[in-house]
């Protein structure tokens, strides 16, 4: 037994000495080093969605701008402040925070660390904070594009959309943009749009069974293309539609890569182009032209992938035309920013 205690004491002593010779972080205080950090919301860096898209934008900055890049995954909401401070305290030049939930922590950090630029992905800024840019997207344009695509590709003149709650403005803009885009192409088209607003916020984005069931009931009513939007609920709708033999459209990122089970029936995805948006803002920060307040990235739609051969050339041409008109402002979606 005595030997045991000696060993324990030795271990404790060893443990106390260890911090003295730990690993060291890159020195970001020097002018020539350009450091960019990412703080995720309560989710993983490889979530195949926002966190990953933002990280890919940062990786692009590593490649093209020679930035030193690093990420921290948040496990509990109370750590947002601390995780952001971990980068800012090390004199990082840019900190990217991903998701609406980090909005307040990011505003607070921007006030506290004037030498660091902050990029808040999907964080709409009610007021301008120096050193902070909220990266937002015209979701209504992304929805409009895939709505126009669906209206041209349907053979039954009936299409569907399955969404999480319309109380979250981006989801609302996707859904209503979809409706507007479809009607722009074909004013007589029949559109089924359902929001999962009958349950709470914790459930509305995480109900794939409901998404799949709703999607299938629309297909029974004759719809042959379903747009699913809103976390796992939307994913359920996309997978459910493909299982039922219909075509599906994903959301936010190119879901061809995030939902392999839906690949054979995935026509496209309504995309927030987060990766170029994050990269552009990092570049602006490096060039000393960082915009405070809200910065709008671009919306787009994903490639047709497996279904490329089934999309007629005139549809592709029409989509490019609509896309160009939305970008230069000659075509407006007329979707209200929030549900009235």
């Amino acid at each position: 037994m005595k030997k045991m205690y000696v060993m324990l004491v030795a271990l404790l002593l060893a443990a106390m000495l260890i911090p003295a010779c730990g690993p060291t972080a890159p020195d970001c205080s020097k002018v020539e080093t350009f450091c960019v950090g990412v703080v995720t919301d309560v989710g993983k860096i490889d979530d195949k969605s926002f966190n990953q898209s933002a990280w890919e934008g940062v990786k692009l900055a590593e490649k093209d701008l020679g930035a030193i890049v690093q990420y921290i995954e948040t496990t509990d909401a109370k750590d947002y402040d601390k995780n952001i401070a971990t980068f800012a305290d090390e004199n990082y030049d840019v900190v990217v925070t991903v998701g609406f939930a980090l909005g307040e922590a990011t505003v607070a950090a921007a006030g506290k660390y004037p030498n660091t630029k902050f990029i808040g992905v999907d964080q709409f800024q009610g007021a301008v904070t120096p050193g902070l840019a909220g990266l937002n997207f015209p979701e209504d344009q992304a929805g409009f594009l895939v709505g126009a695509l669906a209206a041209q590709m349907t053979t039954t003149d009936k299409i569907g959309g399955v969404f999480a709650t319309d109380a979250v403005p981006p989801v609302w803009r996707f859904g209503e943009g979809y409706r507007a885009g479809a009607q722009y192409v074909n004013p007589d088209i029949e559109i089924f749009v359902v929001y999962h607003s009958d349950v709470g916020f914790d459930k509305t984005f995480t109900d794939p069974e409901w998404g799949a069931a709703t999607s299938k009931s629309m297909i029974e009513k004759g719809a042959d293309i379903i747009f699913g939007g809103g976390g796992k609920t939307g994913n359920g709708a996309v997978i459910g539609a493909v299982e039922a033999g219909a075509l599906a459209i994903g959301v936010d990122t190119d879901q061809y890569f995030t939902l392999p089970e839906a690949q054979k029936g995935l026509l496209s995805s309504a995309m927030k182009l987060i990766t170029p948006g994050v990269f552009d803002l990092i570049k602006l920060a490096k060039d000393g032209a960082f915009p405070d307040g809200n910065y709008f990235g671009k919306a787009g739609f994903a490639p047709y992938h497996d279904l490329d051969a089934t999309v007629p050339a005139e549809v592709k041409a029409k989509m490019d035309e609509i896309s160009a008109m939305l970008l230069d402002g000659s075509l407006l979606t007329n979707v209200a920013p929030v549900k009235p």
Partner: peptide
Amino acid sequence: MRNGATRMQFLTQIPV
């Protein structure tokens, strides 16, 4: 452990 995980990931990029 929960708190130190942040710095561990910051320095080594090992998943938390």
